[in-house]
Nucleic acid binder design. Sequence first.
DNA 1: TCAAAAGTGTTGGCCATACACCCATGC
DNA 2: GCATGGGTGTATGGCCAACACTTTTGA
Lengths: 248, 248
Amino acid sequence: MIDVTAKPGHAPVFVTVDLVILTVRQDVLQVLLIERGNEPYLGFPALPGGHVRDGETLDQAALRELGEETGVDGRSLHLEQLRAYSDPGRDPRGRVITVAYLALGPGLPHPTAGTDATAARWVPVADVFDGPVPLAFDHAGILRDALERARSQLEHTTVAAAFCAEPFTVGDLRHIYEVVWGMPLDPSNFRRKVTNADSFLVPTGERRHPETGRPAALYRRGAARLLLPPLLRSGDVTRPGPVVVTPH
Amino acid sequence: MIDVTAKPGHAPVFVTVDLVILTVRQDVLQVLLIERGNEPYLGFPALPGGHVRDGETLDQAALRELGEETGVDGRSLHLEQLRAYSDPGRDPRGRVITVAYLALGPGLPHPTAGTDATAARWVPVADVFDGPVPLAFDHAGILRDALERARSQLEHTTVAAAFCAEPFTVGDLRHIYEVVWGMPLDPSNFRRKVTNADSFLVPTGERRHPETGRPAALYRRGAARLLLPPLLRSGDVTRPGPVVVTPH
DNA sequence: TCAAAAGTGTTGGCCATACACCCATGC
DNA sequence: GCATGGGTGTATGGCCAACACTTTTGA
């Protein structure tokens, strides 16, 4: 049963899932990192993740790891497959292929450490790349790809609302875009776009009273997953092209 | 070395790559299918693919399989990772996770059968779904995802040129869009867009003389990978949302 | 001269940006 | 009143679909 084609050179491999869990806290985009409790890369920061179990799909494994690492179930956040990473040398212990997932959620509580981790914490993404300690394995590249995916998804889909705890205001939502894209947006034009988009926001009828200023209407996430028309980053944003396989 | 974490429930799995190779021949979008020469699904049509070898990345495995199945090296066509498919029941022989790749190329020669295949042939994609014999494994779903990815990529990237053998005319390129999207496009507006896009087309200075009509300028692929501004499918195209993991 | 395809010009409408301005509230 | 953010109105400019029109060839 397990011996699909037991030819030499076709050895079975280990498959893991790794999670890039993003949130916006304190006006900064943050990623959940663990500190590795085992060799290799002992003590290094890394993305949470783990092995796929026998009867499990990759999606199920990602959901399970998410719960184990953060204590949050997948219902309240957005989870999608990013891509597979397969460099033969990416794990010094042997052949391990990983499938990365991108998770987006509202400001989550401080996580409890999982089994494989001695510590789990939120880290501003800017600090990850500028910091003194690099990420374990090829996780820096995975994080980079995940960030670009997230930024791009804000343009064409309604996932930004996944960053907001319900109910939320248009200002909350705009704040997400501004933090993730790293640029200010025109409040009035932003409002027009997101309120005109079909089934993006459903008004609750309630209002939130800020410390000072006019109260803002509250909304919940609508059924739409796609944002039509798209909300494009204006100006000279350098977008990466598609990830293409180039021979040699 | 191979025993990364030899816990029960973490058995190693087999990993394969499957290729969705698309081309436009005789005014129709076609996909390269093999006929399976082994159980399971013996005699059924299937996507070409095979096991990842020990020292190989997934990209390298996809390129190798591409050569083995079609005799074409990857230099002249576009190849990109699609996503991983991991349903535990997708292969009755055991646990096999596959990573699908999307390949786009100009009208390729009739392929020579590979090792695992008793026959390989081009099949119009419309016939695949309407035909009497379904694809093996979960390949119908993979093909569906690949088609949507290809159609979407035409909007935002320059991959359409990968369908054209060089040199090609603006009319050739427009024909690709019309076949893949299944809708006619305005020739004059199309021309304006693709010739205005930076580094999409580089004129050769030559002209091609059709059987009848005015000769058309010839072009080669430019360096641009991204199409700015995008060339959007107009009208009421129903686009699928992002593939999201939903718990339960 | 006709058919066919390449290629150009023009126009009207839509949409996005920029920005002025009003609204509602706490202090 | 005033500061602060929410929310509305509007005009200018750019882009795009639609389509009329010209060009260049083979037959």
